[in-house]
Amino acid sequence: MASSEAQYESDDGMDEFMDKFKTQRYKNAFTENNWEEEFDKVPMFMKKAPEEFDSETHPELACLQAIIHDEDRPPQEQAKSLKDEGNAFFKEKNYQKAILSYTAGLKKKCGDQELDTVLLTNRAAAHFHLGNMRSALNDAAAAKKIKPDHLKALVRGVQCCIELRIFADAIQWCDEGLKAHPNDKKLQELRAAADKHKRAAERDARKAKAKEKKLYGEKEALLAAVKDRGIKLLQPAQPRQHGSDSEDEDEGSSAAIRQLRVDGLSSQEVTGAQVFLDEQGSLHWPVLILYPEHQQSDFISAFCENNCFLDHLTVMFGEELPPWDTDRKYHPQNLQLYFEDEQKERLYQVNPETSLLKVLQHKRFFVKAGTPSFIVLVNGSPFWKKFLTGKKVQGL
């Protein structure tokens, strides 16, 4: 009897509670403004895990992590939990953390080949999105070794090979995949793309080789033209080869010697101009004209060997004189031209009506850095007298 009365009392109390609940709002309920924020604090509903947390700030999340990484559970369960954790990071595009989770799962060595294949393929995808193509390819290859017909591993391997521009390997991956999945459209599309890239790369390689061969032929012709004219190139300093007993080596005896001679024809001017042979067989040289009195210079990018110096001086100092010539004294008829023999510390005076070729053929003229250079002075000027004082001067 007492039990029945207690039951009635309990029921009466619940009715009273429910009546009160209908008339009063629950004080701790979520509001329309904060429910999303509050739900995001609950581990099961979090859209994104905090970057760093501990058991005090997020006790529930720490508890879940402890469950995932519980060493007492079988390795297969641990590996699966780590795979799921990696997948969650992957969806958040946190590929670095996804890689760490997948790697931790693989280290469990659970023995489940299907699970290991998925872990490797997923890690390959994370590496792929980070641009680590070689690591992604290694993971895809490891997954394919476990399961040769695993479609995702095959597709990822092809994509990595294409990104790495190893198109022949990409085609091989596709062919292996299509044996197991002959109707897979993705593999078919990737094979077509890889084949197209491969043919384009081979075409570009052929063009580059043909261009290189043409340039080589042009350089050989250029060197031959310089040699036939008796023009001497001042070669850049080169370290002596170990074991070499002779300073003199036969021209053209090796590719290194030929390249050395080509280097002697390379201009160091910022314009990039250098000597070339025209269709008529004439050489055109980049020439540097120096004006030491004013520390100025002129650069003639293509001085034909058959032209004389006066032709260019007339253009450079014609009706309009350079702004640095404040005394207006640089006129073609007032100028003297020289080249310097650095080895013998001697100046050679050049007749402005002389052709460039004749000067270059002089026994003491050496073309330095592919660019013949000359000094121009104003005849009879105070600087001219001072500059020539103590110097040995000789005519051609």
Rank of each mutant, 00 (worst) to 15 (best):
A2Y: 13
Q7R: 14
S10V: 08
D12N: 12
F17K: 11
M18G: 05
M18I: 15
K22W: 04
K27C: 08
A29S: 11
A29G: 08
T31E: 11
E32M: 10
M44C: 06
A49W: 15
P50E: 08
E52L: 10
S55D: 14
H58D: 11
P59I: 12
E60T: 05
C63L: 11
L64I: 14
I67F: 15
H69W: 14
D72H: 12
A79C: 12
A79H: 03
A88K: 09
F89V: 00
N94I: 09
N94Y: 00
N94D: 15
K97C: 08
K97H: 12
S101Q: 07
Y102A: 03
L106V: 02
E114R: 05
L115D: 06
D116I: 04
L119W: 01
T121P: 08
N122Q: 02
A124G: 14
F128K: 04
F128V: 01
G131E: 00
A136G: 01
L137P: 01
A140N: 03
A142Y: 00
I146Y: 02
H150I: 00
L151R: 02
L151G: 00
K152S: 03
G157R: 01
V158M: 02
V158Q: 09
C160V: 07
W173E: 15
G177W: 08
A180E: 14
D184V: 08
A192W: 07
K196M: 13
K198L: 13
A200P: 05
A201D: 15
A205W: 11
K211G: 03
K214T: 09
K214V: 03
Y216Q: 11
E218N: 08
A221D: 14
L222K: 09
A224K: 14
V226S: 04
G230S: 12
G230R: 13
I231M: 11
L233D: 02
Q235S: 10
Q235N: 10
P236G: 14
P236R: 10
Q238W: 07
P239L: 06
S244F: 12
D245F: 12
S246E: 14
S246L: 07
D250A: 06
G252I: 05
Q259N: 10
L265Q: 12
S266A: 02
F276C: 09
E279W: 10
H284S: 02
W285C: 04
V287F: 02
L288I: 02
L290S: 04
L290Y: 05
S301I: 06
C304Y: 07
C308E: 08
F309V: 03
M316L: 14
F317I: 10
F317T: 00
P322K: 00
P322L: 06
D325Q: 01
D325S: 01
K329W: 00
P332K: 10
D341V: 05
E342M: 11
E345M: 13
R346C: 15
Y348T: 02
Q349K: 14
V350Y: 09
N351T: 07
P352Y: 05
E353F: 12
T354A: 11
L356K: 03
K358D: 13
V359C: 03
K363L: 13
A369M: 05
G370P: 04
P372G: 04
S373R: 13
I375A: 02
F383K: 02
K386T: 04
